[in-house]
Write a protein that binds this DNA or RNA. Structure first.
Lengths: 328, 328
DNA sequence: CTGTTAGCGCATTCAG
DNA sequence: CTGAATGCGCTAACAG
């Protein structure tokens, strides 16, 4: 900026005013400075600007990792940000296995300086005052919180998935759960139990296991489930990554999907259509969830007092090729 | 940081030393400060730190937009960053239609302050000295440059795609091109022409059009192509998004894919398996490309002098359901 | 209308 | 081994 000021024959303060469109600069100076900026290809350093000013016009999407779920959300956020004046930064910190706490750290690191507001994806602990900036949570931790939240109808989706398996004639239905610290996982299990109860089919507790939402963490429980003497004829996995890994495990055990085992997932990430067989799953409108979260955050930032509080989007079933009636 | 210093009864300078693992702090003080930091949940502000220090241990992935192509790369980068000491920031600036120049702006904005190095996705103009930080380009602009580059075998892939259509018996084959400013688009067209020439099939120049790699920009040329009296029996689209949109257009014109029209895409983004019919396409190992770019960048940052210069990964054909012999 | 001044939160000299 | 002083690039008051 000093270079620009020198070249334009003005002070850095004036350059700053021009860059930020402040009033009180003569048109001639304004144009001159803009010209020099264009020539030199100057761009204000985000780091320095954010240190001094209250607004950076940058929105952060904070994730633990860039996997199919979070990147789908990101696509939705990115599509919706077009008309706004904000730019986007997606951040994934280093986390040595600690699945909890990364959200606070990211927020403390970026909030209050680099970003004006944040969309936090599957946080365990969110506190509206962490980092002192507006926050919207997507698919957060159990329990009510004071931050606006966007999620999908996890309960209804889980009921639908389970009923689908029951309607096909399955009775030994297993539930491969998600991350126990997330509300979504809890609701999916609840929906599973509710549908079973309604159908009058008792839940075999030994068939309800924890998969952790990640392919690696789901592998062992899936293998245990399918290696049992009395193995289930169907598995409802709490998300697609677990479901896909379950099908891999089944194959490695010589089981045919859907001949010997039916599998239903949850999320409908694009990858679910690429598996063999293609996965029947419960679709969440992930991109729309991202877009909704962005809209809420922007309205928060622009101070349109109305805090929508909570948005819940519908889920739908996508039938593909991973389900069939149980073997005779 | 001042809060931490006060609570620990030391100066901010000492806290800084502890945080950054500098020598010259007594073990007792060290532990005490760490304890307070844990209690208060303190985290250094990225903005301030980057302003003062040369290293931030943050790597930036600079994209124009978060769409399937860039998010696949991001997954690969994210998976590969696990073992390193870097964290990841993906940035998409505001670009009012200007498809060129965003990369310089992003680089100037983040480089030299927030990030230590960058992976730039499909940049048109990259200069190694923009922002003064190490840069690796993925799928960049035409022409040799001084920045290390990672891409896929665009030429070979395009030949394979075209030969596939020719082998099915197609002779009126159209090419729906990409962004003319990108080397990848140029090579895909070249591969198309080369395969046609080898097969002794003349290229009808009116069937070679520009689609721009985006669904919206590909729609009009696709419609024009398929509305012609003598319409092509097959289209090789320069990327999957264009190919998928071409199939949509075909359907809206009452054409059956692949009965009336065969379509081949390029990229194999997950979405290509979700289309109806599922798209036959040329797969780039996108995640691997991202991981490779990261490895090169890290070796650059860690000063392992060996600059690999250029990595080119293989492409493979994925046959799905969008191709058939031409109508009789 | 423009320039001067004073920090934003932190890392780094250099004295103590 | 520790703390006080300095400045990174920028914006926000104020003074001219």
């Amino acid at each position: 900026m000093a270079d620009v000021a020198r070249a334009a024959g003005v002070s850095v303060a004036t350059v700053s005013k021009v860059v930020n469109g402040r009033y009180g600069v003569s048109p001639a100076t304004h144009d001159k400075v803009l010209g020099v900026i264009a020539d030199l290809g100057y761009e204000a350093s985000l780091g320095a600007r954010s240190l001094r000013s209250l607004r950076t016009n940058v929105i952060g999407v904070l994730v633990a990792e860039f996997e199919p779920f979070s990147t789908e959300l990101l696509k939705g956020v990115s599509a919706a940000i077009g008309e706004t004046r904000y730019e986007l930064i997606a951040h994934s910190g280093r986390h040595h296995g600690d699945q909890v706490g990364w959200e606070r750290r990211s927020l403390a690191r970026l909030g209050g300086s680099v970003i004006d507001g944040a969309i936090v994806v599957t946080p365990t602990v969110v506190d509206a005052r962490d980092g002192g900036i507006p926050v919207v949570a997507v698919d957060p931790h159990t329990g009510p919180s004071d931050v606006p939240t966007v999620d999908a109808d996890n309960l209804g989706g889980a009921v639908t998935a389970t009923e689908h398996l029951l309607a096909l004639g399955h009775r030994r239905v297993a539930f491969l759960g998600g991350r126990t610290d997330l509300e979504s996982a809890r609701l999916r299990e609840k929906g599973f139990r509710e549908a079973m109860r309604r159908a009058g089919v008792p839940v075999d507790e030994s068939l309800v296991v924890v998969g952790g939402y990640r392919a690696e963490s789901a592998e062992a429980p899936a293998r245990a489930l399918l290696s049992r003497a009395e193995r289930p004829t169907a598995v409802f996995a709490a998300n697609d990554l677990s479901a896909i890994r379950t099908m891999d495990v089944a194959r490695s055990l010589g089981l045919d999907v859907p001949g010997d085992l039916s599998v239903v997932g949850f999320d409908n990430v694009p990858e679910s259509a690429l598996s063999t067989p293609a996965l029947t799953t419960i679709a969440q409108p992930l991109q729309e969830i991202g877009a909704t979260a962005l809209r809420i955050l922007v309205s928060l930032l622009d101070g349109e007092g109305s805090s929508p509080g909570h948005a819940r989007l519908p889920t739908t079933m996508v039938e593909r090729a991973s389900c069939a009636p149980p073997p005779a």
